[in-house]
């Protein structure tokens, strides 16, 4: 996940102004930490996989907006997003099928643990993490597909340049 320092530096002409870049560099860590907190504590507090995943995806979108697409794609490329998306969805169907071996589809088969512990509630934290990863990658992939890889946008830019 290491990114080249010259890409992030405020002298790099791509992306927004140095003010935005500096603020985003501070905010990024907090955004990601908050997103993961929401996902991991999903079975104890309000939130869960979808909410946390949306926050993480917004973090990636923020990166793209502030630093340009190179930085964001170095963190998660479109291919990686697609692979994470599909494998998490596949695992999300596979885990209930394991439960089926124990008797019922979607059975919460592992030991439930003590209430209000971080590791408790059986498979529910696992579902939350899978959903969180899937939502992160798929929302980011949608964002990429609609904005950066859309031929439409590049055409608009070309047309605008021609008019100038």
């Amino acid at each position: 996940m290491a990114t080249k320092p010259e890409l992030i530096s405020s002298e790099n002409p791509k992306g927004m102004t140095p003010v935005v870049k500096t603020v985003v560099r501070f905010a990024m860590g907090i955004v990601f930490m908050f997103g993961w907190y929401i996902i991991i504590y999903g079975h104890l507090t309000p939130g869960g996989g979808f909410a946390g995943g949306t926050i993480l995806a917004c973090g990636y979108v923020l990166l793209t907006l502030a630093f340009g697409k190179e930085v964001a794609l170095a963190k998660m490329s479109d291919r990686a997003a697609s692979i994470i998306d599909n494998s998490c969805a596949f695992l999300f169907v596979a885990v209930p099928l394991v439960g089926m071996a124990f008797g019922y589809f979607f059975l919460n088969f592992p030991p439930h643990g003590k209430p209000f512990d971080l590791v408790s509630a059986g498979v529910i934290p696992l579902y939350n993490i899978l959903i969180g990863l899937k939502v992160t990658s798929s929302l980011f992939a949608i964002f990429l597909a609609l904005s950066i890889f859309g031929r439409f946008v590049s055409k608009l830019v070309e047309e605008a340049e021609e008019e100038e």
């Binding site: 697609s82 692979i83 599909n86 494998s87 969805a89 596949f90 169907v93």
Partner: peptide
Amino acid sequence: LAAAFFNLL
């Protein structure tokens, strides 16, 4: 459902 995602992988 599983086959759909497995297929894409």
